[in-house]
Design a protein around this nucleic acid. Structure first.
Length: 562
RNA sequence: GGGCCGGUAGCUCAGUUAGGCAGAGCGUCUGACUCUUAAUCAGACGGUCGCGUGUUCAAAUCGCGCCCGGCCCGCCA
């Protein structure tokens, strides 16, 4: 590459070469792995890394942590687990990039119990006055943590724990304060001419006055990019507080002229990221596709040719969509891990991230039954209960990483069946119904029954959240009714039949027979039944459902007695 | 404009590295179960593998050219 290449063409060339090593298969083609995490682990091992192997991810704690952020955590988790299985010591860290400035006040926040609240319910004005300041210097709107940053970092950490992913949360602010970044900050500022030169290959706006540092104003606390002088000896910079530009919008500084130490500010992202790699010894880092053509090429270049360190093994992942739309905090199209775990088990959510990271997936809440069933099938393939040639290899390899413990004899109620069981609150009845359908047998161990029944609550939450065709409630109190004489007669006959003692299947048949005998449309008769038991016009398969219930209750209800 | 990733059944996705019969689940339809009522079985339907072209005995898979979507090439992460 000639020296007089324009920045643009250099950029393009770099994109070509660096993009390739995130996507190209192994050259020899012999190391194809069915599970992508194995392939990443191979590449990490090829570097002969020091132990513990460090796997990193990171986000800024700008607001409610949503499911999209868990790409970072779970992609890293699977690679970490694979490496651990291979006998390595692994440390998974997650940086909360909490020294970044708050640029925009989010529309929604979440308190420490995951209640989503609108801006109006907190002191929005107080937040707005803190634009441009590091997240860790902004008061917690909920007053239960040291700062805004600490609040949302904690939520992020909670989410990881809900999925049993052991991560060390590292506060960037702390890393600056405790000196972890000292060496790299000093190095970057000492070699700022070189730094400017290398970054200018990627960013057009880097001019001769550019200093790769953002100082925090001692007067107003806002970060400013306007550095007027650098004293490497005393490890300070001079600045004029002009604030910073963010999202096309200028956040004003106070005009204060001051001096800040190297710890009283931060590196700009393009240097901070490679700085983290160096300071933390990072061996692997997954990142979203937005980084793939943006900060990764420059970060890799900066690491290799400026800091002279080996950049981590990279992995680009595609973003997934939520209910068919892009995840977006501003439009409110987000879902938290906390919410998801009210609807399904952690292992199912982990499974969602087992699949090919390069393909955009849709997380569709209205079809969670499908995702759960898919997981059940995946599990079945692992245990050879289900035949599926195309998925067998992946299931064999990856399934064990989705569960906390591989156990045979687990029982998985089909999700929609669990939703049907959720129509009653009676836990004994739920279990009885599961037995009647053969999902639970006398050989089923107690622990498996207990675990299986947990899904009922989740499926129930799902039905209620979506208000879908499973959202029916067995009515404990007598609903109001208004039936024709014919229907009343038919109900009375059906009551007699139930009183005689019959199975659910027999009752189901008798419903048709009774309706015919009394010249009632079967549809109308079913509606009467649904009205009586669910206070609705539709419901689950009626006869079999009634067959599960206490006969005395059913008879009384059919006779419309209390 | 340049680049990266993706595009396979109505839906969700495997399969693309190393060319070898177009696949699964769900849904739909039909049938069975004394039965139109969502939890049971069985079967069927369902495809221009985004489009075109080249290479090959053989292309979803490899090359080239297009189309569509997302992202990057400002800031920030």
């Amino acid at each position: 590459m000639s020296a007089d290449d324009s920045p643009k063409s250099t950029d393009v060339n770099r994109a070509q070469t660096t993009g390739a090593d995130t996507v190209d298969p192994d050259e020899d083609g012999e190391n194809h792995r069915v599970f992508w995490a194995d392939e990443m682990a191979d590449r990490i091992e090829e570097r002969d890394p020091d132990e513990p192997i460090v796997i990193k991810g990171g986000v800024s704690p700008s607001g409610i942590p949503h499911l999209g952020h868990f790409n970072e955590i779970l992609r890293g988790f699977f690679v970490a687990e694979v490496l651990r299985e291979r006998g390595h010591e692994v440390r998974q860290v997650f940086t909360s990039d909490d020294k970044d400035a708050l640029r925009k006040v989010p529309r929604q926040l979440a308190d420490s119990d995951w209640n989503i609240v609108g801006l109006g319910e907190v002191n929005a004005g107080a937040l707005g006055r803190n634009l441009g300041k590091p997240y860790t210097d902004i008061p917690d709107p909920f007053d239960d943590h040291d700062s805004y940053g600490a609040h949302f970092t904690d939520l992020l950490h909670q989410s990881a724990e809900m999925l049993d992913v052991p991560v060390d949360m590292l506060s960037n602010t702390d890393l600056y304060a405790d000196g972890t970044f000292d060496d790299v900050v000093k190095y970057v500022l000492e070699h700022r001419d070189e730094a400017r030169k290398i970054l200018s290959q990627y960013q057009d706006k880097i001019d001769d006055d550019y200093v790769p540092f953002q100082a925090q104003c001692s007067s107003c606390g806002v970060l400013t990019t306007n550095i007027t002088g650098v004293d490497v000896e005393s490890e300070t910079v001079d600045y004029v507080c002009e604030g910073l530009e963010a999202g096309g919008q200028q956040i004003d500084g106070c005009g204060h002229e001051g001096t800040a130490t190297f710890r009283e500010g931060k590196l700009p992202w393009r240097f901070e990221w490679p700085g983290q790699w160096q300071a933390l010894g990072v061996d692997f880092e997954p990142f979203g596709k937005d980084h793939a053509e943006g900060s990764w090429p420059s970060g890799k270049d900066i690491a290799e040719n400026f800091l002279h360190i080996q950049p981590p093994v990279p992995m680009t992942y595609e973003w997934f969509t939520l209910n068919g739309e892009a995840l977006s905090s501003s439009s409110g199209n987000v879902v938290t891990v906390h919410e998801v775990l009210e609807l399904l088990e952690p292992e199912v959510l982990r499974y969602f991230f087992v699949r090919n990271p390069m393909k955009a997936k849709d997380f569709d809440i209205s079809r969670l039954d499908q995702l759960v069933d898919e997981f059940d099938r995946f599990e079945g393939i692992y245990f050879d209960d289900v035949d599926d040639e195309s998925l067998a290899a992946l299931a064999d390899r990856a399934y064990p990483f989705t569960v906390d413990e591989v156990r045979e004899n687990r029982v998985r109620l089909p999700y929609t069946f669990a939703a049907v069981l959720g129509m009653t609150d009676d836990e004994d009845l739920r279990e009885q119904m599961a037995r009647n359908e053969g999902h639970i047998t006398d050989d089923t161990p107690e622990w498996a029954i207990e675990e299986a029944m947990k899904r009922v609550e989740k499926a129930r939450n799902w039905a209620e959240r979506l208000d879908n065709e499973y959202n029916y409630r067995l009515q404990v109190a007598m609903p109001e009714t208004d039936f024709d004489d014919d229907v009343e007669t038919a109900l009375a006959e059906l009551a007699d039949f139930v009183e005689e003692g019959h199975s659910g299947e027999e009752i189901q048949g008798e419903i048709y027979e009774t309706a015919k005998r009394n010249d009632v449309e079967t549809g109308d008769f079913f509606q009467a039944g649904y009205r009586l038991f669910f206070d609705a016009t539709q419901g689950p398969r009626l006869g079999t459902f009634l067959g599960e219930l206490d006969a005395t209750f059913v008879v009384k209800r059919l006779r419309r007695e209390e």
